[in-house]
Amino acid sequence: MHDDVFAARRGVQMRRMLRQHPGAALGVLFILVLLLASLFAPLPYDPMGIDGGATLRSPGGEHWFGTDGAGGDVFSRVIYAARVDLSLALAGTVLSLVVGVLLGLAASSKGKGSERLVRGLDAFQAFPLLILALALVSLSGNKLYMVVVAIALINVPRFMRLLRSEVLSLRESRFIEAATATGASPRRIIFRHLLPNVWGIVLVQTSLTVANAIVVIASLSFLGIGVSPPTPSWGSMIRDGAGNMSSGEWWIAGFAGLAVVLCVLAFNQLADAIGDRTARTYR
């Protein structure tokens, strides 16, 4: 019963937050429409098909976003690429969140083990993580699951440091001392007192991580790593269309680049709204 009331209250707070932040509401609407279209909407053309007789056609009634150098429909490819890129970004973010939160809780405990964990993280971050991610994906033969692992490698340290700093500051709070004095177990303190009070800032970092993951996936695809042809990806579409920009065929790279920009902007707007709501709640 208590969990149902808590969930209903969270739902009301989310709706109120979106009403107060129209940019975040538009961002959420854009992401939902894009995801639903990529998963369920019938595409006008095969996103992986080619048509040698319809190459480099400008946007119009037959091809809304035009066609690329192989005659592929750019609109169908942009929408299908959302399924691929957003799925990888969300999967990488969830993995980053789970591992980062667990490591952050472990690093916030007292003892030599937590100190060793923090030192190990410092040593790990001494490596250029994006280069390490590029190497892992390349050596795996462009396996998509390694793209998810690469995103996690880049973002797990951020979640871990964020959660550790928040938990360490909360452990000195009076309500934590009171819970400890009443005999609450460490597990209850973590799940009933600590995590609910840091969840807002964790959600902010989650939204920012999705935005960062979209950029990473697009960058990998632009370099020819990760999502392999003929599967569409926004980064590979930008790479393929970049050579046509000088001759006026802007739409191949333009619409794919616009999709990346709008997705990143949407998740950043959502992060700003959650951060503002969290600041008001704990002010």
Rank of each mutant, 00 (worst) to 15 (best):
75 F>R: 08
149 V>P: 00
218 A>Q: 01
26 L>I: 10
269 Q>F: 04
214 I>H: 02
83 R>E: 09
20 Q>E: 08
142 N>Y: 04
215 V>Y: 13
212 N>W: 05
149 V>E: 02
91 A>P: 03
60 G>R: 05
78 V>M: 03
156 V>Q: 05
4 D>W: 02
74 V>K: 04
105 L>F: 08
240 D>M: 14
142 N>P: 09
61 G>C: 03
166 E>Y: 00
60 G>Q: 08
71 G>Q: 07
63 H>R: 03
237 M>I: 11
223 L>F: 12
51 D>N: 13
103 L>D: 06
202 V>N: 11
280 R>H: 13
62 E>M: 11
207 S>T: 10
234 W>P: 08
281 T>G: 00
211 A>W: 05
213 A>N: 10
10 R>G: 12
190 I>G: 01
16 R>E: 05
160 M>I: 13
58 S>M: 14
248 G>R: 05
21 H>F: 13
283 R>K: 05
177 E>P: 04
164 R>L: 09
77 R>I: 08
92 G>Y: 04
190 I>H: 03
269 Q>R: 00
192 R>D: 07
258 L>Q: 01
239 R>T: 10
72 G>R: 12
129 L>N: 01
224 G>T: 11
77 R>L: 04
235 G>Q: 11
180 T>R: 14
142 N>S: 13
212 N>R: 09
194 L>R: 00
212 N>S: 15
175 F>R: 06
199 W>F: 15
282 Y>P: 00
159 F>M: 00
211 A>F: 03
2 H>I: 09
250 W>M: 14
243 G>E: 14
171 R>I: 04
157 P>Q: 01
248 G>S: 09
5 V>N: 06
115 E>A: 13
8 A>G: 10
71 G>D: 02
191 F>Q: 02
247 S>I: 15
228 S>E: 08
172 E>A: 07
215 V>K: 08
243 G>H: 14
135 A>S: 08
56 L>M: 15
249 E>W: 15
7 A>I: 15
20 Q>R: 11
130 L>D: 04
251 W>E: 11
69 G>T: 12
134 L>V: 14
39 L>V: 08
16 R>M: 03
195 L>H: 13
246 S>H: 13
281 T>A: 09
143 K>Y: 00
274 I>P: 09
221 S>F: 01
281 T>P: 00
275 G>M: 09
273 A>L: 06
99 V>C: 14
262 L>I: 13
10 R>M: 12
259 A>W: 01
62 E>I: 12
139 L>D: 02
108 S>M: 06
66 G>F: 01
5 V>C: 01
173 S>H: 09
51 D>M: 04
116 R>P: 02
127 F>C: 05
205 Q>K: 04
146 M>N: 02
96 S>A: 15
104 G>Y: 01
169 S>K: 07
81 A>S: 15
112 K>G: 05
162 L>P: 02
17 M>Y: 04
158 R>V: 03
32 L>I: 06
263 C>G: 07
79 I>P: 00
22 P>Y: 07
129 L>K: 01
128 P>G: 08
258 L>A: 11
140 S>M: 10
252 I>D: 00
87 S>E: 09
235 G>D: 14
109 S>G: 14
158 R>Q: 04
129 L>R: 00
23 G>R: 05
103 L>K: 01
246 S>G: 07
178 A>E: 15
12 V>Q: 10
263 C>M: 12
184 A>P: 00
69 G>V: 01
281 T>K: 08
260 V>G: 07
50 I>H: 12
30 F>K: 11
194 L>V: 14
